[in-house]
Lab assay of single mutants.
Amino acid sequence: SFNTVDEWLEAIKMGQYKESFANAGFTSFDVVSQMMMEDILRVGVTLAGHQKKILNSIQVMRAQMN
């Protein structure tokens, strides 16, 4: 498990989005775990492969939080 959203993004090789997530207010796992595709688009993730990777990881995160 990760301590910060930045660490999580690095771990899934999506570190290039750290600033975008932070600027959009997605700075805690409570918020990130609620993200939908529209949120991912809003933070500027436009590549389908990256969207899928982030969404898949969020689903895993949700499962671990319950």
Rank of each mutant, 00 (worst) to 15 (best):
Q34H: 09
T27S: 10
E10D: 13
F29S: 03
E19Y: 08
A48V: 13
N56I: 12
M65I: 12
K18Q: 07
E19I: 09
S1N: 15
I40E: 00
M35D: 01
T46F: 10
Q34A: 12
M37W: 12
S1F: 13
A22W: 10
Q59S: 11
Q64I: 09
E10W: 04
V31M: 11
L55D: 03
N23G: 08
V43S: 05
D30N: 12
S57F: 08
I40D: 00
I54V: 04
M61Y: 05
E7W: 04
F29E: 02
S57V: 05
V31D: 08
T4S: 12
N3E: 13
I58F: 02
K53P: 03
R62Q: 09
F26L: 08
M14N: 01
A11C: 09
S20K: 13
M14E: 01
E7S: 09
V45H: 00
A11P: 01
L41P: 02
T4R: 05
K13W: 08
R42G: 10
N23F: 09
Q59P: 02
I54N: 00
L9G: 00
V31C: 08
M14Q: 03
A63W: 06
G25V: 02
Y17W: 04
S33I: 14
Q34N: 13
M14W: 01
M37F: 13
S20D: 14
D30T: 11
T46H: 12
S33Q: 08
F2M: 09
L9K: 00
L9T: 00
L47N: 15
T27L: 08
G15C: 05
G15A: 12
I12E: 04
L9A: 01
E10V: 10
K13T: 11
M35F: 04
F21Q: 01
K53V: 15
M65R: 03
N3F: 09
K53T: 15
S57I: 06
D6H: 08
A48E: 14
S20E: 09
K53N: 11
D6F: 09
L41W: 08
K13S: 14
A63G: 11
K52R: 11
F2A: 08
K18D: 02
R62K: 15
R42W: 07
M36E: 15
F2I: 11
L47D: 15
T46L: 12
S33R: 11
